[in-house]
């Protein structure tokens, strides 16, 4: 990653500065360019659904924002701060940025939380301990505070009676709800969901989506979700982004993008998905 220049996201006309900005972000794996010059602003509190064919780079977008992948070009901003970069020495106000140090990454990363397709719960800890670990280790909460916070969140996701269960004793849907509570326990401003219902049996999808709906209604979280649940995206998202071969091929309000897609690729993708049921 090179030193870069990127403008601090400014408040748009009458609005607020974006919570997340991908500024000309590029990601390559060897010769393969997975994301090409991605430009995307997401407002605070906005719910964005990312859809698109397999391999189009949807997961990569989330993983970069969670700092699980390094980027090869551009700058990612979170909450008005550069995340992948930090201001260069003596460059105050000049807009010159150098790649972020571990310390800077840790500081900004705390604003983002992620829920994974395969849950990734810690198998050697109870549901409650899963939710307490990072608040105690990273945020320095006392065990008592962390326990209260964890128990409260687990009740919120409907698992108030499963605090002492281990992941191996829970269904997929329950595990995914623990994973949501675990991420929320860090009080992130941005939550990322990567196909969080794809690994679940069909009858367990609903309980997880219900929790996400509730989160959207009760918290002013910024939420970015990669999903194949078109019905849910339509009903839940403020905006839908259709990815195709590492670029945003089309973006818009769900009613427009689903009702009257402009892009030929979008149309093909949607009809293929609808056909599959």
């Amino acid at each position: 990653m090179e030193a870069s220049t990127s403008e601090r996201p400014a408040a748009a006309e009458g609005g607020v500065a974006p919570m997340v900005r991908f500024d000309r972000v590029t990601k390559r794996y060897g010769a393969l360019t997975v994301l090409d010059d991605l430009q995307l602003d997401i407002a605070a509190g906005e719910k964005v659904a990312i859809i698109g064919p397999s391999g189009s780079g949807k997961t990569t977008v989330l993983r970069m924002l969670m700092t699980l992948e390094r980027i090869d070009g551009g700058v990612i901003w979170v909450d008005g701060e550069p995340m992948t970069h930090m201001p260069g020495p003596g460059a105050a106000g000049s807009g010159s940025l150098v790649p972020a140090s571990q310390r800077h990454l840790r500081q900004v990363r705390g604003k983002v939380g992620m829920v994974f397709q395969h849950f990734n719960l810690f198998p050697h800890m109870s549901a409650l301990k899963n939710c307490m670990e990072a608040p105690v280790t990273v945020l320095g909460l006392s065990r008592k505070e962390a326990r209260e916070r964890g128990a409260e969140l687990l009740s919120m996701v409907g698992l108030g009676d499963k605090l002492d269960h281990f992941p191996g004793q829970l269904s997929g849907g329950q595990q995914q709800r623990v994973a949501i509570a675990r991420a929320l326990a860090m009080r992130p401003k941005v939550m990322l969901f990567d196909e969080v219902t794809s690994a679940l049996d069909p009858e367990l999808v609903g309980e997880v989506l219900t929790v996400i709906r509730k989160l959207g209604a009760e918290h002013d979280l910024t939420m970015i979700m990669v999903t194949h649940q078109m019905g849910f995206a339509k009903e839940f998202a403020d905006r839908v982004c259709f990815f195709y071969q590492g670029r945003i091929a089309e973006t818009g309000a769900p009613a427009e993008l689903f009702g009257n897609p402009e892009n030929e690729r979008t149309r093909q993708f949607l009809s293929a998905v609808l056909e599959a049921g």
């Binding site: 983002v112 939380g113 994974f116 810690f122 990072a134 280790t137 990273v138 675990r182």
Partner: peptide
């Protein structure tokens, strides 16, 4: 130990040493 355990640890902002000690080594 599955890579997802490291990734979950990073997503929760644990340092590499914290992740190793608390999450990876016990498994």
């Amino acid at each position: 130990v599955p890579r997802g355990q490291w990734e979950a640890s990073t997503a929760l902002n644990l340092t590499r040493m914290q992740a190793l000690r608390r999450i990876i080594l016990p498994q």
